[in-house]
Design a protein around this nucleic acid. Structure first.
Lengths: 179, 179
DNA sequence: GTGTTCATGTAACACGTTACATGATTGT
DNA sequence: ACAATCATGTAACGTGTTACATGAACAC
């Protein structure tokens, strides 16, 4: 039984602190947003399966409140599996970008509509950029776990520069349309 | 029956010239490589389905050779569907990048292995960059279909700048590791 | 004569999302 | 009171890849 890539974010984030499925979803959305995503439909069955494999385990729940909440922590075995996975060559996954596809075939439809798609996407990119820069600023001053912060900032650096480059491209596209 | 996104590259590329399934696969690999990909397992059933819907049709085959080869062309109806699809808001698909995931969790394993993954990926990016620039140069001097070439070059422009940015980031990462 | 490219197609599998079902807690 | 958020989980669906099956033509 080989480890599924979808469970890596779970193992990885549980090295930061014990978390519930719901927490993990949030953490993935906030921290891995630039290059990863996962849905509840995958997360919860994964947690179950990782428990069965002994890679994570459920904490004694602090059920002072009747609210059901399962908190998991990573096991030593889980840490080993994560370290092994990092060694393996990364699988390159096909990228699929509908906006670019619309751009590529713009002449077969209404090019001005494609320009508008671009503008909308540019706005979303601006929001992301602001968020990434905020996270990066927060990480710059972190004293706890500077080793983790180091690598987090490396991925953020790519996110920031790619997003800036993308915004610049959108501007160029819009300018080009003004001819 | 709504149109599947997977069939858009087929419709789009058939506006350039009639092609077979095999030709289309090649064309997708060469021209849409930066932002799209499709496997035979999806391509052939799609061709069948598009024929049934009347969006493409099979040409009279020139069976001088006994070699079986089916060439398709886009219909007026197909062109309409393509134009309609371009108008719709693009669906943003989640990106998944294993290298970035390894980078993010590098401190939980062997960071030097991640550096090596980066270097390898950098080499592949260099190859792509050279290819993109070659295609762009070829398109610059194209006299036929300048309207198509215009949009093709726009997508290429993003591909080139994103790839350059990525290579720069790889270099920064490697430099950072030398500390 | 051997390997590569051309060429089409199917079936099984893996992956991932969406929608649904359920209900407590918190903020306004 | 009402909405939003917290919280877990399943089932159905859709999408996409891999492996397999088959064979001709061409280059060396």
């Amino acid at each position: 039984m080989t480890i599924k890539t979808a469970s890596i974010p779970i193992l990885g984030l549980l090295t930061v602190r014990p978390m519930s499925g719901y927490d993990l979803k949030k953490a993935i959305e906030i921290s891995l947003n630039f290059f990863w995503s996962e849905s509840f439909g995958q997360l919860y069955p994964q947690l179950k399966s990782l428990c069965e494999q002994g890679l994570i385990e459920q904490l004694q729940q602090d059920n002072k409140s009747g609210r059901e909440k399962k908190t998991y922590k990573i096991t030593a075995q889980g840490q080993g599996v994560l370290a092994d996975w990092i060694l393996k060559n990364p699988v390159v996954r096909p990228q699929r970008d509908e906006l670019l596809l619309k751009m590529f075939f713009a002449s077969e439809g209404d090019p001005m509509a494609v320009r508008d798609h671009c503008l909308k996407s540019r706005t979303e990119a601006e929001v992301l950029l602001t968020r990434y820069e905020g996270i990066d600023a927060g990480l710059r001053d972190t004293t706890e776990d500077p080793e983790k912060a180091r690598y987090w900032r490396m991925t953020l650096k790519l996110g920031i520069s790619q997003t800036k480059n993308y915004i610049q491209w959108c501007d160029d596209v819009v300018k080009d349309f003004e001819r």
